[in-house]
Nucleic acid binder design. Sequence first.
DNA 1: TAAGAAGTTGTACTGCGTTCAGGTTTGGGT
DNA 2: ACCCAAACCTGAACGCAGTACAACTTCTTA
Lengths: 197, 197
Amino acid sequence: MGLRERKKLEAWRTIRSTALRLISERGFDAVSVEDIAAEAGVSRTTFFSYFPTKEAVAFDLDPQALAEWRTRVADDTDDQPLWPALTDLFVDMATVIAEWLPVQKRVLQQHPGLTQSARATCDSFAPDLYRWISRRTPGGDRLQTSLVLNTAMAGYITALEVWDPTDPLDVLLDSIRDCLHRVGTGLAAWERTSSTA
Amino acid sequence: MGLRERKKLEAWRTIRSTALRLISERGFDAVSVEDIAAEAGVSRTTFFSYFPTKEAVAFDLDPQALAEWRTRVADDTDDQPLWPALTDLFVDMATVIAEWLPVQKRVLQQHPGLTQSARATCDSFAPDLYRWISRRTPGGDRLQTSLVLNTAMAGYITALEVWDPTDPLDVLLDSIRDCLHRVGTGLAAWERTSSTA
DNA sequence: TAAGAAGTTGTACTGCGTTCAGGTTTGGGT
DNA sequence: ACCCAAACCTGAACGCAGTACAACTTCTTA
């Protein structure tokens, strides 16, 4: 990893940390992009070269963490049944972003209007999961694959929604496992029958 | 229904139709709020008194249709099991907004970035559904209720995602029924056990 | 029909997000 | 050690979404 790449990641993290600190202190609307950029020591233009929107600075995934998770998903040779394996991927994801979850959740509690942006976080790893599910269920059509993905995400989102950020991370991870297990037990029965429906 | 209320609804629908027509013709980004307001014969200020954001004009629910659906949900004395009854509510919702679905879907196909806004449509009737589910599952905790809601919505969203807007509405309705049945069969088994988990 | 409530309009303002030309830093090749 | 091209950062200017507000018009009701 060259100097250039390291500096970029460092800048990304500086801007992100600065943003979350300011937003935690003053609230999302009371902090402008200008404020964040100034405090992080970069220009407004540079801010937008790292984050496409102001919301993104609070909810985008760490590039390195995301890349690591992606390679793990791509190289996955797990031979468990579909839903336990899928559950592991979501737990991995939550673990990877564990550091930021409490503060993000607290921002969401103070500003429910950002729920949409939070869901966009899921969308950033959805394509990888879609491919992974397709690979695991060769007979599945588009409907079945999307249904599995969206249902699993519903479980993940629900666990995040109900989680209290002052609780330890293990509580969240167990809740994710619980939710995916509950929603998965029904869909598992459809895995074989989808092409004959 | 007084003159005032009738005029308001009429204005709402004029703005909405105008907006969808212009957006269909030129694309979402190439139409400004100013354009829509001018073409609809109102001021920019008035536009924002009807729709909180530019996205809302494409995805908000018709006030009358929403009100009718709400009373139907509130007065619901259906004694079917949970998931068939819930399925009926979603099918009702889709029927109620059937008129706009094809053009909205076409806008989404041309502009995938608006998916988040489309999901906000669901959020506008989510609170009603949450209350309805709570009423139907007295023993359920917050996790179970949210899980049922989010999972049902995942089914609904999935059906919308894979639906081809050139297909007749019945195809979509059947798909909604199919998706909710699939995701519901698993969760139905948890209805009784949630308080002992 | 007069008073007041509800709705509309123009204006001015903040702040997000984009574009672009010009300057600076970095890594690779000689 | 030097140079060059590519990548990066920056300031300035712009368009447009969304808000605030005071003046004005239209509807309701007593």
